[in-house]
Amino acid sequence: MAGDALSDLLRTVRLTGATFFDIAAQDPWAVCSPAPSSILPKILPGADHLISYHVVTNGRCFARIVGEEAIAVEAGEVVVFTRSDPHIMSSNPDLRADPPTADVLDIASAGQMPFHINYVRDGSLSARLVCGYLACDAQPFNPLLEALPPVIKAGDSKGDAGWLGQFINLAVAEVAEKRAGSETVLTKLSELMFVDVLRRYVESLPPQHTGWLAGLRDPHLGKALALIHDRPAYNWTLEALAKQSGLSRTILVERFTRLVGIPPMHYLARWRMQIASELLSAGNSNIASIAAKIGYESEAAFSRAFKKVIGVPPSAWRLGIRAAGNVESAAGPNEVLWTETEIGPARGPDRPQP
């Protein structure tokens, strides 16, 4: 069930692959990735959040966020910058690099992908990388992004037999052969690769770790999260959620709040608003029908709840007007935002008890 919650979140926040780079390099070399603010308008207009990744397919190199310690990355490993902080990929951890020029980003966004960058001068290749960007929605509520560290490195102990090895082989083939549909194949491969990196990260978490991913790993909280994600419009109460999760009400609230960071009913309300924001942005449903889909019996109750969480009414969100900052611009993370009666009763097919 926990895996379902992760899949549902990734689907709802619209994870998608974007521009790809094929980099061939010769020592010494260094490439700097610019800040998301300069990348998004060029290659991902309208995207909320940028994730960058680099898969080393040959040789080795170093990866580091500007101003931080360098990480060695070997062939067969991938490094993911979950916030796309300005970072440097280089042959030596001490090398500096200038960010790509606007011209390079323009060419990359307009040309056929993958975009090739050649730093080889005399034919002596020392490293090769397949790099790219993923985009997803950060607002109004993406607990996954809050739970991830700035950098994740993953490797495949099984070599080519593991998923990352297969990803590398397929990515290299698509880059080299330039077959019809390669761009789409690379896009889907990068999304699958990211999900696999997330799985590995969850499995590596220490027992004392807290956060949304730690909640997924807990069998009882994973069930609670899956229930909320699977049936967001249901008239959940703490008693019903606790019973279905195999915990007492008191323990559910304590454990959920400690690991996930907010109480279960607050999580339910925010998750409903995430779904609502996606429906509003799609523009295919009126506000009354969206209210019904996420568990509110009236448009007025939904509009009040939406503004309470997001900071702007649903109509403003649909027009592209965002509240300053993130979800917590409307209320701090520890404020009591809702009582159970304020969450809103369910209607329609989700009315029966679970």
Score class of each variant (00 low, 15 high):
K153F: 02
V13G: 00
A346S: 11
P140G: 03
S52D: 10
I43P: 06
L50I: 10
S281N: 12
I65V: 14
C61G: 14
A180N: 11
A214V: 06
G211A: 05
S248L: 11
T57R: 11
T16C: 05
F81V: 11
S90Q: 07
R272S: 01
L15M: 07
E74F: 13
A5C: 02
N169A: 14
V202T: 08
E191H: 07
N284L: 15
D94Q: 13
A300Q: 05
P86H: 12
R272H: 00
P93F: 07
A300H: 04
E146A: 15
M1L: 13
I287A: 04
G46K: 07
G159L: 08
K307S: 14
D4V: 04
L145F: 01
V327T: 09
L279E: 07
A108H: 10
A323R: 00
D218Q: 01
A291S: 10
R304A: 15
L238M: 07
M265E: 05
H209N: 12
L225R: 00
W163I: 14
A291M: 04
N284H: 14
A75F: 08
A292F: 04
D137V: 11
V130I: 15
W317C: 06
F256T: 01
P143Y: 01
M273N: 06
E299Y: 09
A24T: 05
G344F: 00
G123N: 10
E183I: 10
R231Y: 06
N284T: 09
R14D: 15
F115W: 04
V55H: 11
L144W: 00
R11Y: 10
L247V: 09
P354E: 12
L145S: 00
W338R: 01
K158Q: 15
T237Q: 00
Q353L: 15
A18V: 09
H49Q: 08
A127R: 01
R249M: 08
F306N: 08
S84K: 08
L6G: 01
A323S: 09
A127H: 03
A171L: 04
A233F: 02
E342D: 14
L15A: 02
S289E: 13
G17E: 04
S303T: 15
D218A: 01
L192P: 03
V336C: 05
A292K: 03
L216V: 13
P333T: 03
F81E: 10
W236M: 06
I43G: 12
P264T: 04
L164A: 00
G283K: 11
V73R: 07
V31N: 09
L213Q: 09
I107L: 14
A269W: 02
V79W: 05
G246M: 02
F62C: 10
G159N: 13
L225S: 00
A282W: 10
S7M: 06
T187K: 14
I290K: 01
I152C: 03
R270S: 05
